[in-house]
Simulated scan of single mutants.
Amino acid sequence: MNPTPQTVTVVIPALNEAAGIGRTLASVAAQPGPVEVVVVDGGSTDGTAAAVHPALASARVIASERGRARQMNAGAAHGRGGALLFLHADTALPPGALDRVRRALAEPGVAGGCFAVTFDRPAPGEPAFGPLGRAAMRLWEARLWMRWHRLAFGDRALFVRRDVFDAVGGFPEQPIFEDLDAVRAVRRRGRFVFLDAAVVTSARRFRRGGAVRQQLRNLALWAAWNAGVPPARLKRFYPD
């Protein structure tokens, strides 16, 4: 007799994501269960909350104070699954993602992990990146970088055992790099694994700011975080 699959709670923090959250929810709806979905709205003014149920009727929508870490912690507190997966509202899961999570967390000593990442392509009518921009995006997608915990950003769909999440106190409620600080804490509780399957996340920030310029900004902020600069000081250089 096969054991009952573990319930995965998918927590989606959202702020003004009405236009794109349907794609994210559709990718979750295509996953095998058991799964529960908690969308945490941080005060959207564009109808994000109203866009959830037409895309996934079973999802729960809760309100929280604005702030990604605060919203993710609120969603986790409302979830009942033994595994938690934190999914950005502009990121889609690959087929079979939650089964991969269940298998990974069933391995002895595994506390959490994340996926690889790729970026979406421009929609019809959107400008495409130039040669330098395309090269910058391909560089970030390269698998060479995908197995280092200091690059385990939140847009890679972090997942963790519930007991580990509770033991580390959830995400630190800081304005930036809450994901990397949480990964650091999780690694002290067990192995952190890197799945080969890739989520697809939006490149909109790179389209707005320019791929090369945005990558250089991200690199500078990441280097400052590694050097110990407080996240509150770095946030002003990374607007919402």
Rank of each mutant, 00 (worst) to 15 (best):
R162E: 12
V186K: 00
P175N: 07
R161A: 15
F159Q: 01
L151P: 00
A142T: 08
D179W: 01
Q174Y: 00
L195S: 08
V168A: 06
V164S: 10
R147M: 04
W145I: 01
F165N: 03
W148Q: 05
D181N: 10
R162D: 14
L195W: 01
A185G: 02
L144V: 14
F165W: 14
R187F: 07
W145M: 06
E178W: 12
R184T: 10
W140I: 15
R147Y: 11
R184N: 03
A152Q: 02
V164D: 07
R161L: 10
L158I: 15
A197Y: 04
F165R: 01
W145F: 14
F165V: 07
V160I: 11
D163F: 07
R150V: 04
G190K: 08
F165A: 08
E178N: 13
V186D: 00
I176G: 11
D166R: 09
G169F: 10
A157H: 07
V199T: 11
V164E: 07
F194I: 00
R150I: 00
D163N: 12
F192G: 06
R147C: 11
R161M: 03
A157F: 04
E173N: 06
A198T: 07
D155M: 08
R162N: 12
V199E: 06
A157N: 08
A167S: 14
A157Q: 08
F177E: 05
F153Q: 01
A198F: 03
V199H: 09
V164A: 05
M146D: 15
D181V: 11
D163T: 13
R184S: 12
V199Y: 09
A157M: 09
M146A: 15
G170R: 01
D166Q: 09
A167W: 07
A198I: 05
P172Q: 06
V168I: 15
G154T: 02
L195P: 08
A182S: 13
G169P: 12
D196R: 13
E141K: 02
R191P: 02
R147D: 14
F171I: 01
D155N: 15
W145E: 00
A167Y: 05
I176Q: 03
W148A: 13
Q174V: 15
P175T: 11
D166L: 07
V193C: 08
R143S: 15
V193G: 08
R143K: 13
L158R: 10
Q174M: 10
R150T: 09
F194W: 05
A182L: 15
D166M: 01
